[in-house]
Simulated scan of single mutants.
Amino acid sequence: MHYLTGLTLALFVASPALAEDWDFVLINGTGKPIKTVEIAPTGSTDWKPGLEEEAARRAPVIKPGARTTVRLDRPSSQCRYDVRATFEDATTMVFANGNICDNSYLTVKLTGGKPSISAN
């Protein structure tokens, strides 16, 4: 019996964290048109493109005040993400530490010229 319990535990520990399909609404409060959105777990540099809704692919620029749905695969234990936006003028900014588990809407904005992210 102990053999099976040990084997079961070994399989559980060796299993990778399962990813979940997840989405949130990103609101552009920066005052600048956004061309691309990438996301990464907060504190990492593992940037992945945000998979935007079909309408966003037809009109790829997220205008100031506009919103788009961003889709991702996330491990069930990961809630905090950074958002990297590339603007139409080719500048890039990172908006750090958005909580997508507790908030369905995140607004990226410039506060005193510095990037910030807030939940709605």
Rank of each mutant, 00 (worst) to 15 (best):
T69N: 11
T69K: 08
T69D: 14
V70E: 09
V70G: 00
V70A: 05
V70T: 11
R71K: 13
R71C: 00
R71D: 13
L72S: 14
D73L: 13
D73E: 14
D73H: 09
D73T: 00
D73I: 04
D73M: 13
D73C: 09
R74Y: 08
R74W: 08
P75C: 10
S76P: 07
S76G: 14
S77T: 03
S77M: 06
Q78M: 07
Q78L: 05
Q78R: 04
Q78T: 06
Q78S: 09
Q78E: 12
C79T: 12
C79Q: 03
C79M: 10
C79L: 08
R80S: 15
R80Q: 13
R80A: 14
R80M: 14
Y81V: 01
Y81A: 01
D82T: 03
D82Q: 00
D82M: 03
D82H: 01
V83N: 11
V83A: 13
V83Y: 07
R84M: 12
R84P: 10
A85H: 04
A85M: 08
A85S: 05
A85F: 07
A85L: 01
T86K: 00
T86V: 03
T86S: 10
T86A: 03
F87Y: 06
F87P: 00
F87E: 09
F87G: 02
F87S: 08
F87H: 09
E88L: 09
E88R: 06
E88F: 04
E88A: 02
E88N: 07
D89E: 04
D89C: 07
D89R: 01
D89Q: 00
A90C: 06
A90K: 09
T91P: 01
T91F: 05
T91R: 01
T92A: 02
T92S: 06
M93Q: 13
M93S: 09
M93E: 12
V94H: 04
F95E: 13
F95Q: 05
A96N: 13
A96T: 10
N97G: 15
N97E: 12
G98Q: 03
G98F: 07
G98V: 01
G98D: 04
N99W: 05
N99Q: 02
N99R: 00
N99V: 07
N99S: 06
N99E: 01
I100N: 06
I100K: 02
I100W: 08
C101Y: 08
C101R: 04
C101I: 03
C101L: 03
D102F: 10
D102W: 10
D102G: 05
D102E: 15
N103Q: 05
N103F: 08
N103T: 12
S104W: 12
S104D: 11
S104N: 15
S104E: 15
S104R: 11
Y105K: 15
Y105A: 10
Y105S: 10
Y105F: 12
Y105T: 15
L106K: 06
L106Q: 00
L106T: 03
L106I: 13
T107E: 13
T107C: 11
T107G: 02
V108K: 04
V108C: 07
V108I: 09
K109Y: 12
K109E: 15
K109V: 12
K109A: 12
L110Q: 09
L110P: 02
L110A: 02
T111E: 15
T111M: 12
G112C: 08
G112Y: 11
G112S: 06
